[in-house]
Amino acid sequence: KVLVLALYDYQEKSPREVTMKKGDILTLLNSTNKDWWKVEVNGRQGFVPAAYVKVL
């Protein structure tokens, strides 16, 4: 399983997205889209901007 680090806070803007806080460790589920990556955080799955996270 691939983990990513949240570099910035992100507030979800649609039901398909998830909120994350800077420093959160998320599970990367899909990174085929260069702009939006699907992650799991706190038991929820959704998209975050790829530029806001870094693969650990």
Rank of each mutant, 00 (worst) to 15 (best):
K34R: 08
N33P: 05
K22T: 09
L28F: 03
A51L: 12
W37S: 03
L26P: 02
D24P: 00
W36Y: 10
G43L: 07
D35P: 03
S31L: 07
L56Q: 08
L26S: 03
G46V: 04
K21Q: 11
K38D: 05
N33S: 10
I25E: 04
P15H: 14
T19S: 14
R44A: 09
L28P: 01
K21F: 12
K22M: 11
L5T: 09
S31F: 11
L3W: 12
D35N: 08
L3V: 13
V55Y: 11
K21R: 14
Q45F: 11
K34W: 07
P49N: 02
L7E: 05
P15F: 09
T32N: 15
N42F: 10
K34D: 12
K34P: 11
L26R: 01
P15D: 13
D24Q: 12
E40A: 09
V55A: 07
I25N: 03
R44K: 15
I25G: 02
L26G: 12
R44F: 07
K13P: 05
E17R: 04
T32S: 12
R44V: 13
L56Y: 11
V18K: 02
E12A: 14
S14N: 13
Y8K: 12
L28H: 01
N30G: 08
Y10A: 01
V41R: 12
A50F: 02
F47L: 10
N30S: 14
N42Q: 09
Q45Y: 09
V53Y: 00
E12N: 11
V53S: 01
K38T: 07
K1N: 15
D35I: 11
A6G: 04
A51D: 13
I25M: 08
K54H: 14
D35L: 10
L56A: 05
K34Q: 09
L7Q: 05
D35R: 07
N33D: 15
E40M: 08
V2N: 08
V39A: 02
Y10I: 01
Y10M: 01
L7G: 03
R44N: 08
A51V: 10
Q11I: 15
F47H: 06
G23R: 02
P49H: 02
P49F: 03
T19W: 04
T32Y: 13
T32G: 11
L29N: 03
S31Q: 09
A51P: 09
R44L: 09
Y52E: 02
G43E: 07
R44P: 01
N42I: 06
E12S: 12
V18D: 00
N30D: 12
V18Y: 04
L56F: 07
W37H: 03
G43C: 11
L28G: 01
A50H: 04
M20R: 00
K34S: 14
N42H: 13
D9E: 06
R16H: 14
V41F: 11
A51H: 12
L3R: 09
P15Y: 12
S14D: 13
V55D: 05
G23D: 07
Y8F: 13
G23Y: 05
L26F: 06
V4G: 12
K13T: 15
K21H: 12
K54W: 12
V55I: 14
T27E: 14
G46C: 03
D24K: 03
L3A: 06
L7Y: 04
K34G: 11
K54A: 15
A50N: 03
W37R: 02
K54S: 13
F47G: 01
T27R: 09
V2S: 09
A50R: 12
T27N: 08
V53D: 00
Y10Q: 01
V39M: 02
K21C: 09
Y52F: 12
L28V: 13
Q45P: 06
R16I: 15
D9T: 06
W36S: 03
V55K: 08
G43V: 04
L3Q: 11
K34M: 11
L5H: 05
G23V: 01
W36M: 07
T19C: 05
S14G: 13
K54T: 14
V2R: 10
P49V: 02
Y10K: 01
R16K: 12
G43I: 05
V48Y: 01
N42K: 12
Q11A: 15
N42S: 12
V53A: 03
K1L: 15
D24W: 10
Q45E: 14
K21T: 12
K22E: 10
D9M: 03
K13A: 11
P15A: 14
L5I: 14
L26C: 07
V18R: 02
A51R: 12
W37L: 06
L3E: 09
V4W: 04
V41K: 13
R44S: 08
F47Y: 13
V53C: 10
Q45N: 10
I25F: 06
K38I: 14
V4L: 14
T27I: 13
V55M: 14
A51Y: 08
Q11M: 14
L3F: 12
N33E: 14
